[in-house]
Amino acid sequence: MNTLKIGENTFELAESIKKDLKASKNLEILKCIQCGMCTSVCPAARHTDYDPREIVKRALDNDKNLIKDDIIWDCFYCYTCHSVCPVNNSPCEVNQILKQKSIENGVGKPKVAPFSEYAESYLECGLGTIPSCFFDDLIKDYGKEWLELKDKLEDIREELGLGSMPLPEKDVNDINKILEKTGFTKRLERIRRCMNEKNTR
């Protein structure tokens, strides 16, 4: 049970979410009535312990441990909860902001580190590819057929009359210029540094 202190802002976390730069102007987290509509339609809630209603309740209860909780990483932003909320709250959006707070706090960095491989593939070949650290899970979920499909993808594309997946070098260079100008490359460099710091500890 939380003990309230005189003058304490019990909505500090919820208000910081509402004021966040990434929050929609009409995000109504403070109007949440805990009806559970979001949880009733959430695919992640159906298959994991993730509960969008509970996430919002904990944010409203000023539970700052929420940004350290692995459960926030089970939301995959389908926005189904957003579409049914009667007060125009968006647990999905709340969750995105919580994840960003987790990353900024240093707790969430290991969660996003594997995706640096996805980002690296943009620099190398101009296309996003599935990080190799996810291969085992994909084989477990879809069977060895997934790996066979991946290995034979170029042949399949040729049979279907589609072009080759790898882009011409000129296009890759153009994409790299765009990534440089938009700050993507600089952000990726920060992720690399975080990963190196983690590996040297």
Rank of each mutant, 00 (worst) to 15 (best):
L4N: 12
K5H: 05
G7C: 02
E8Y: 01
D20H: 15
K25I: 07
N26S: 08
L27D: 00
L27A: 02
I29M: 13
I29V: 15
L30G: 08
K31R: 14
C35V: 05
C35M: 00
C38Q: 02
T39R: 02
S40F: 08
S40T: 13
V41Q: 03
C42M: 00
C42R: 00
A45W: 01
R46A: 12
R46K: 15
P52M: 04
E54M: 09
R58I: 02
A59D: 05
L60E: 07
K64V: 11
K64L: 12
N65H: 10
N65P: 01
K68H: 09
D69N: 12
D69V: 02
D69Y: 03
D70H: 11
I72S: 04
I72N: 00
C75G: 07
C75F: 01
C78M: 08
Y79M: 09
T80C: 05
S83P: 01
V84T: 09
C85H: 00
C85Q: 08
P86G: 08
V87C: 02
N88S: 15
N88F: 10
S90F: 00
C92E: 07
E93P: 00
L98I: 01
L98M: 03
Q100F: 02
K101I: 02
S102H: 04
S102P: 07
E104S: 14
G108E: 03
K109G: 02
K109V: 13
P110K: 11
A119P: 03
A119Y: 10
L123C: 04
L123W: 06
C125F: 06
T129R: 13
T129D: 04
I130Q: 07
C133W: 10
F135I: 05
I139M: 07
D141N: 14
D141Y: 09
Y142V: 00
Y142F: 15
G143N: 06
K144D: 11
E145L: 14
W146K: 07
L147H: 07
L147A: 13
E148M: 12
L149F: 15
L149T: 14
D151W: 02
K152Y: 09
K152I: 03
L153Y: 13
E154C: 04
D155F: 07
D155E: 15
I156R: 10
R157C: 04
E159P: 00
L167D: 01
P168G: 03
D171P: 01
D171V: 14
D171K: 14
V172M: 08
N173K: 15
I175K: 11
K177H: 04
I178S: 06
E180Q: 12
G183I: 06
G183E: 06
F184P: 05
T185V: 10
T185E: 05
T185H: 04
K186L: 07
E189R: 07
R190Q: 13
R192S: 07
C194L: 08
N199L: 14
T200M: 10
T200H: 09
